[in-house]
Write a protein that binds this DNA or RNA. Sequence first.
DNA 1: CAGCATCCCTTGAGATACTG
DNA 2: CAGTATCTCAAGGGATGCTG
Lengths: 125, 125
Amino acid sequence: MSRYERTCLIRGDGGRAIRRILDRIGNKWTLLVVATLDDQRMRFTELQQRIPGVSQRMLSLTLRNLERDGLVSRTAYAEVPPRVEYALTDVGRTLIEPAVRLAEWAVEHDPDIERSQRAFDERNK
Amino acid sequence: MSRYERTCLIRGDGGRAIRRILDRIGNKWTLLVVATLDDQRMRFTELQQRIPGVSQRMLSLTLRNLERDGLVSRTAYAEVPPRVEYALTDVGRTLIEPAVRLAEWAVEHDPDIERSQRAFDERNK
DNA sequence: CAGCATCCCTTGAGATACTG
DNA sequence: CAGTATCTCAAGGGATGCTG
């Protein structure tokens, strides 16, 4: 793939492709939920325990959006007390790979970036 | 790399790694600017023309943050009228690869996702 | 247990006007 | 040309309380 073709994938259609995905995963909790469910299917409360800092409200909203997008499946069992299990779908699992690439980039270049920020702030203070 | 190790890259440190990168690139214009600069170094106005919809203010803010992070270099020439050129740094270029992966994922799975959304909305209307 | 409803505050981002 | 300064609005997200 040429350089032009690569960036066209991002810039194509006025950037709508990249916008759609960032609108989905760019928020605070989505990728954390997906990564947590990669281990195993899980109940609501367990998910909340494994994701430090997430509120009931935000976990609920995040899961509903993921279900709507077809990345997570929701299974409610007719029991008392209620039991609901969430799991990644096949499509949801395919998101892990590019997300991990991004995380690798973040971990690898974070020192450079922090150094650059300090230098910049020093120059412009 | 095991499944556990992969997702730990995302979830590690309470999700701070993924948060840092999403705070950087998750906004509306950053990846578009980076992708546009992948072609060639470019002046402010040219950049604005090539990125449909970006305002002067947002382009300015986006470029300053990218410069602060060390992903974009800014070169001002002492001329009248002023000329300023922006270009990707070496670190900035390394971001293209994972970003393209993400865009590929978006393009590939967008039909699935839109179908899932319509079905979800139909069920819950 | 697994949530929804409400309130509130902060941030992202657009529009407009001005400047070295 | 290449920005900055203000203003404004909408969305994201936290805290709290309630419920089938």
